[in-house]
Amino acid sequence: MTKPLSIMVNTGATPEVRFETSGHTAMPIAWFRSREQLDQEIQVILSGRVTKLNRIISFAPTRHIYGYVFAHHLPSYINVKVTEAWRNMLDVPKLKGNEHLLIVATPGCWRIIWEMARYTSPKQWIVLHSGGLLPKLCQPWIEYLLKQGARVIEILGSTETGAIATREANTDYTKPWQLVSDVELAGDYSSGTSRLSISSPRIGRRFDLVVAPHTWTLPDLVDVMPDRRHFTYVGRESRFVKVDGRRCNLELIELRIRTLESIADVACIARRSAVRGEHYDIYLVVRPDSYIGNDLISCIKMVAKGYHSLMR
């Protein structure tokens, strides 16, 4: 039987850690988590899956909950090398043979993971994928990793809730999600597809609350199975897309771009991206005698928060 990765209590630590929503849906909102909650985040994801670890490679920045939990919080307890690959997404991290790796992945980094796997055996790898849907482009790469003995674990969660459910990637891409051990469904799902509502001791404390809520409802739509521990993911109720962990409100983006005098109309269309899993396109109607100038470029940069691929 696989033993969980042992976690020791650090009594001299800061009581709470601050995380913020990405700010694409509205103003960024601060959520606070206790170190006990962060410890439990590690346990519900890695317990029974990791027995040995000597290096962590994170493509998620430390402002991202899983980037912080696995590339900052976890290394504060165990002696492990950390590579912050998110700081330069053009470089392929240098590897040694037979390393016991934990890779914290986001949708935009899978080409780099594939390049890593081409030069060394991924047999001892565990890849945690979060921040959006698995891109279709990476499916053959994942199948290669699985054949070599690696494990790929998808995490469904949010800044507000932490991990809600996981599933191990395999060749069946319709495999249902399973709630992690300390999460329960809070909604009534007897009538079919419904918004995902959960109860969990790891829900964060919003900045304007004295205590954290015990339940939370997300914009994600699910079909729940009779055991209430598994569900299939249907989509989102609203016009939200999640790009590398950043939730983007397409209605809000349209509203901001429409404030520009040179724009007669705008439409943001959600797309499935083979590279990022989810993305969106912006279509513009420019007023006569106007042109696409720096005001539009600045506006899109503001709402897109650094997604320079939009500026093509």
Rank of each mutant, 00 (worst) to 15 (best):
L101F: 07
V92H: 05
L128R: 00
A71P: 01
I78Y: 03
G97F: 05
C109M: 02
S130F: 03
S130V: 04
H129E: 06
V69A: 14
P75Y: 02
P93Q: 09
H73T: 05
E84I: 05
A117L: 12
I65R: 01
W86S: 13
W125Y: 12
L95T: 07
G67Y: 07
Q124A: 14
A117H: 00
V104W: 02
N79V: 07
M116Y: 06
H72Y: 11
K94G: 12
V82F: 03
L90G: 09
Y119Q: 13
L128Q: 04
P93F: 07
A71V: 04
G97M: 08
G131N: 08
L102G: 00
V127F: 13
I65S: 08
R87Y: 06
N79E: 15
N88E: 15
T106D: 07
E99M: 03
F70T: 04
Y77M: 10
A71T: 03
A85G: 10
A117K: 09
P122G: 03
H73W: 10
W125P: 10
V127R: 08
L102W: 00
S130Y: 01
T106Q: 11
L90Y: 03
H100V: 01
V80A: 10
K94A: 15
I103W: 01
K96L: 08
V82L: 02
H129Q: 05
N98K: 09
R111W: 01
Y68N: 02
V127Q: 07
H129S: 04
L95R: 06
V69R: 08
N88Q: 15
P122W: 05
H129V: 00
G108S: 15
D91T: 11
L102E: 09
E115A: 14
K96Y: 06
A71E: 06
Y68K: 02
W125M: 14
A85R: 00
L95V: 12
H129G: 04
G97V: 04
Y77L: 12
R118E: 13
R118I: 04
V69E: 06
L102D: 02
L90K: 06
L101H: 11
H72T: 14
I112N: 07
V80P: 12
V80F: 07
A105L: 03
G108K: 09
S121N: 07
H72N: 12
H100E: 00
